[in-house]
Amino acid sequence: MSVLVYVEQADGKFKKSVFEAVSYAKAIADNQNTSLTAISIGNVAEGDLKELGKYGASKILNVAADQLKNFVNQAYASVIAEAAKKEGANLIVLSNSFSGKGLAPRVAVKLKAGLVDGAVEMPNFDGGFSVKKTAFSGKAFAITSLTSENKVIALNPNAFGVKENAVDATVENFSPEIKPTDLTAIVKEIVRATNKISLPDAELVVSAGRGLKGPENWGMIEELASLLGAATACSKPVSDADWRPHSEHVGQTGIAISPNLYIAIGISGAIQHLAGVSSSKVIVVINKDPEAPFFKVADYGIVGDAFEVVPKIIAALKAHKG
């Protein structure tokens, strides 16, 4: 089994989730006694491409065609499928990011490959090939067994971790032909806040709910998040009321996340909220109601008024950081 990993770039740079996907793909390649090839599409500098060697990619296919500068899943899927054929790769790994979710299914259909999206663990090779993935929006896991010759895995961010495993990396230019019909969708504009930590990738998350009473009280939430280097999130009623943007809404009908630390402030812990956050590694709950259901899944709890508790935590954090 030869392994190919797709390394997604944003503005020519790789994010942590990419190094994580490479680390994961490398672990699979090692297990199967094969080497790992990465494929990058868009304009990434040679030095950044070579850095992928640090995580185990020994060959990097670089597709730098100008018309592929922006992500168009239809064209990117064709390129990845071509690369897989050229490399004889029958396992393709990518990140289960927003773009990955639109890309992996197309690659899978092109290669007639079974697809596991939202993988959270290394595959199990005992008597076959199966992978554990999240299901029921985080309320359960499903072990999916793939029987097809080709396979695609979309790895959840923060599920495997970044592992260094340095190898010599060579960069090879690759210019497959692009069908014009693959470029029907045209990217007109990209708006990205570069100063903010993106929620799906965040290792630390500070989240707040209706207990905060109104959008004017989010200052302390943002301050705590920025001191921690955390992303901010919120419950559904908060984004429904436009106190915060929809992109911060976590839960069953929002984003599902599994950061190392999730701090929930003034959130009751409804089943739909918990679905999206309960696989966080450490959960802290701050709520004035000792009966709030969220305490049942918390590791640390503070029963108290957020408006008194949070400033104390901020002060302690400032002291801790010196």
């Binding site: 999916t144 067994s145 097809s148 696989s279």
Partner: peptide
């Protein structure tokens, strides 16, 4: 054709 299937479910370990 069938390319794969779910063989087992798990619920998250209790905290």
């Amino acid at each position: 054709d069938e390319l794969g299937k779910v063989t087992k479910f798990e619920t998250p370990a209790p905290r």
